[in-house]
Design a protein around this nucleic acid. Structure first.
Lengths: 342, 342
DNA sequence: CTGAAAGCGCTTACAG
DNA sequence: CTGAAAGCGCTTACAG
């Protein structure tokens, strides 16, 4: 049997102590309504509340107002180093305005995502930040159907008119390629991420277009079905078995790059002497790895913070127009890329 | 102004559709009470609920029952790689039983911890898992005062009779020292963590006792005031300025070890040729660092899962006795330790 | 097995 | 400026 908790101090207890109606206490304690109450009463109410150790029951308040002062966040997996900074950005921004954030992992499984959404709807969530979107994702329609404001972060959908905070992959990939081309590389492979993810898709497309524009081969591509080390390793092994004629690898994210690195080390391919490799995202501690990975820094914390700001504005009824914020990534040069020698 | 959301489907809508009282719907939809309702009605209610797209309003349910099916988690900082695995262990365990987890960062600041606790109390949280405890921490008394069941994880308090899931530091530190002694090291330094944290305190004490028992110097100790890279670096610099006569360093956790490593590299001290160093916790990707860090693996995910299990049992009224679970750590040998040569 | 009523702790139109 | 009432969507003793 579930335990019963001690009865809490309520607004009525405070009202009794002061000798006013509990609705007066409610008003006196509400920053927005306080001005309608005489200063003397406000003061007495505050004193009584403090003395009794009163704190408001958010659950009751939520039920009455049909909003919860909570926002939900959907991520693939907390243990993926991409997401803690994003969540922290969301938390710091949302909490500063009095909101609580509830995070759920989907493991990129639609059923878990569905369950998480249901749970959040049941909790009368005021808004959602979604880091799990696929390029065509029914969750967008679901949020619309339930009239839950939401903003996508990191990944977006193909469909127009959706609020999203993403990174400028054109800039990111081009800066990587310019770097590699400057080092003399001509045959550059890509380990593409899952194509149902906007990040995987766009990075691959920009790669291909940019290489083609330079009259360089754009078809040395390995495909990862997930953004994981294992998939990076597998995709690299597959690629090099089919075509050994490349001198540099651009991985669609850092985890894939680490997987490639593993596969390279197994094969005695030295990095960067024999082959260069780059990642994308720049998660924590990459600078201390062996070798330190050249990558593209994505402002994860700021993306989370921006997504939260937009969401909060939407919830206030402002910012109706769909907003797409493209954050600037930045190439970070480290030790996994070098001049082509042969 | 806050937006108004569409009215949701309620238990009354379902009741109207079926032609029963809404209390009957409530019972039919409750796994525990369902048996008191005729199978025919249950079936009709379920069909109607499904057709209408009904999902329960957890907020209303929480208010009535004075419990929220939510557990709160207090951590110092999500971006510290120690915590995501702990939280994931908590989430997977709690969510499997229908609980939602709400996580808050305290940044090891008492005011933030206080604010987080208030927020959670306001949300009628059913229990708390606390990863931020100091050795004498008023939060324990506060939880007791408010009759919120809680369990500590990773860090514990000196006070007896509190539920906690910790790691067996005696085992962990001894295994590190046995390893180092086996390599021939005699003068072994310790970079101690903050002594208000049980982990910092116990690891330092075990070190000292064990070295003393082997008639080895136990006073080569640097003090970090926080478990951060910066503090590790500072403490090492301070220590080596005062006493250069040691050949190995045992850091109280991985972040401190990384800070030491930085300070060593700045000074041209080669690891492990000139000096050995070990960490503690074994967070993600340490195996890929330069050099790969020898450390003590702490079962983070399992600790979170165990803490959640205990909490859930407490909330069910079982497991009254204070439970202290000591998880077994495991030495992980990598490339930052080597035989003493001179 | 089912219904009707009360109530969880708030907020907020409506009076005055 | 303040009070009294109604109600948010559930759950649960109490009847029958």
């Amino acid at each position: 049997m579930a335990r019963k908790r001690k009865r809490n101090i309520t607004i009525r207890d405070v009202a009794d102590k002061v000798g006013v109606h509990h609705s007066t206490v409610s008003r006196a304690l509400s920053p927005a309504k306080r001005e309608k109450i005489s200063a003397a009463v406000v003061e007495k109410v505050e004193a009584a509340a403090k003395e009794l150790g009163y704190y408001p029951n958010i659950v009751a308040s939520s039920l009455k107002q049909n909003r919860s002062f909570a926002v939900g966040v959907l991520i693939p997996d907390l243990m993926n180093p991409m997401f803690p900074p994003i969540i922290r950005g969301i938390q710091d921004t949302a909490e500063a305005l009095g909101y609580t954030v509830i995070t759920a992992n989907t493991d990129d499984e639609k059923e878990k995502e569905q369950a998480a959404l249901r749970m959040m709807l049941g909790r009368s969530i005021d808004g959602m930040i979604i880091a799990t979107a696929q390029r065509t994702d029914p969750i967008v329609d679901e949020c619309n159907k339930h009239e839950v404001p939401f903003v996508l972060v990191n990944r977006t959908v193909d469909h127009q008119g959706v609020n999203a905070v993403v990174v400028d992959d054109e800039l990111g990939i081009r800066s990587v390629l310019d770097h590699l081309l400057g080092l003399g590389h001509k045959r550059i492979a890509h380990i593409a991420g899952p194509q149902h993810s906007s990040t995987g898709f766009h990075r691959a497309r920009v790669m291909s277009e940019y290489l083609t524009s330079k009259s360089l081969p754009a078809d040395i591509v390995g495909s990862a079905s997930r953004f994981t080390i294992e998939e990076g390793r597998r995709a690299f092994a597959e690629l090099i078995a089919a075509d050994a004629g490349f001198s540099a690898v651009v991985a669609a994210n850092d985890l894939l790059a680490l997987g490639c690195l593993e596969a390279m080390q197994e094969r005695g391919i030295r990095v960067p002497e024999d082959m260069s490799i780059t990642g994308y995202d720049d998660f924590q501690f990459l600078d201390r790895m062996n070798p330190a990975l050249t990558t593209v820094m994505v402002p994860k914390y700021d993306m989370g913070a921006a997504a939260a700001s937009i969401l909060l504005e939407m919830m206030d009824g402002e910012a109706q127009l769909p907003v797409v914020v493209k954050m600037k990534p930045q190439l970070v040069l480290r030790d996994s890329t070098a001049i082509l020698t042969d």
